[in-house]
Amino acid sequence: MPVNTQAGEPRRPPFNAEAARRLREALGMTPAHVAYGIWAAFGMRTAPETVASWERGESSPSEAELTALAGALWCTPGELLGAPGTLREYRLALGLAPVDLARRIGMEASAYERLEAGGKWRGNDRQAAALAEVLRLPLPALLRFTGRDEKLAELLTSAATTRWQAYVRPVGKLVPLPRQQIQGVLRDLHGEYQATMTATLNWGDGGSAEESGRAGRALLDDIVAEFWARTGRQDP
């Protein structure tokens, strides 16, 4: 169901309406009780009809409203969110303000806010490690947020299309996984790609050759996702 937002309003968190309703009912509260709790604890005037609208998925709370709703329902903001996909959503899931997160990872607040708005990662390895620890980021998400997934894609593409053995160490520097696991995945990706492209030669100019060529290109297009899937580290 579409969520109503005001024109020009910042993108709202991925609200889990069903979780909000379930948590409220478990506490034996009505939407009016929740609305009162939001006002009493956070000073935010919220109509019971608004709370009910959130639960029906007709609208969703803003970041401030989400924090207040979590307080009224005695839960964490993360319990009211769907699976996080952006840096902002990971932060909201833990109920952290941008300035607090920036302080904990040793970054200027303005620099972090630019990053969350879609800017490029300008931090160092220590800050990246702190970001992963504070936000409990899966490895694929960390590489994506720090802009290293593009380099990973280049390395994986080269491994699949040339000599995979030469890329075990470079990939290992980028992705802290066991060397043996990386070797196995690169070998498999290389073997699958080469077998697909060999099929295009065997079939000549027929439709099967074209189909094999498409399969090979598709593998390269999704090679980062394939890599994470084969290492058991899918990106949410």
Score class of each variant (00 low, 15 high):
residue 69 L to D: 04
residue 70 A to Y: 14
residue 71 G to T: 06
residue 71 G to W: 02
residue 71 G to F: 06
residue 72 A to H: 06
residue 73 L to R: 05
residue 74 W to E: 05
residue 76 T to E: 05
residue 76 T to V: 10
residue 76 T to C: 07
residue 77 P to I: 06
residue 78 G to V: 08
residue 78 G to C: 09
residue 79 E to T: 09
residue 79 E to W: 04
residue 81 L to M: 15
residue 81 L to C: 10
residue 83 A to R: 13
residue 86 T to Y: 01
residue 87 L to P: 03
residue 87 L to N: 02
residue 88 R to S: 11
residue 88 R to A: 15
residue 89 E to I: 03
residue 89 E to G: 03
residue 90 Y to F: 13
residue 90 Y to N: 11
residue 90 Y to C: 07
residue 90 Y to W: 11
residue 91 R to P: 01
residue 92 L to A: 11
residue 92 L to S: 07
residue 93 A to F: 01
residue 94 L to F: 06
residue 95 G to D: 11
residue 96 L to F: 07
residue 96 L to M: 14
residue 96 L to N: 02
residue 97 A to F: 04
residue 97 A to W: 14
residue 100 D to I: 06
residue 102 A to S: 10
residue 103 R to W: 07
residue 103 R to F: 15
residue 105 I to H: 01
residue 106 G to I: 04
residue 106 G to Q: 07
residue 107 M to D: 06
residue 107 M to P: 08
residue 108 E to V: 14
residue 109 A to H: 13
residue 110 S to T: 12
residue 112 Y to K: 00
residue 112 Y to T: 00
residue 115 L to K: 04
residue 116 E to W: 14
residue 117 A to R: 15
residue 117 A to P: 06
residue 118 G to W: 08
residue 118 G to T: 09
residue 119 G to L: 07
residue 120 K to L: 14
residue 121 W to S: 09
residue 122 R to E: 11
residue 123 G to Q: 11
residue 124 N to Q: 12
residue 124 N to V: 01
residue 125 D to K: 12
residue 126 R to L: 14
residue 127 Q to K: 05
residue 128 A to L: 07
residue 128 A to N: 12
residue 128 A to P: 02
residue 132 A to L: 01
residue 132 A to E: 09
residue 132 A to F: 00
residue 133 E to W: 06
residue 134 V to P: 00
residue 135 L to P: 02
residue 136 R to E: 06
residue 136 R to I: 02
residue 137 L to C: 09
residue 137 L to D: 00
residue 137 L to H: 02
residue 139 L to Q: 00
residue 140 P to I: 06
residue 140 P to K: 13
residue 141 A to P: 13
residue 141 A to G: 06
residue 141 A to D: 14
residue 142 L to K: 00
residue 142 L to E: 01
residue 143 L to K: 07
residue 144 R to A: 15
residue 146 T to Y: 10
residue 146 T to A: 10
residue 147 G to L: 10
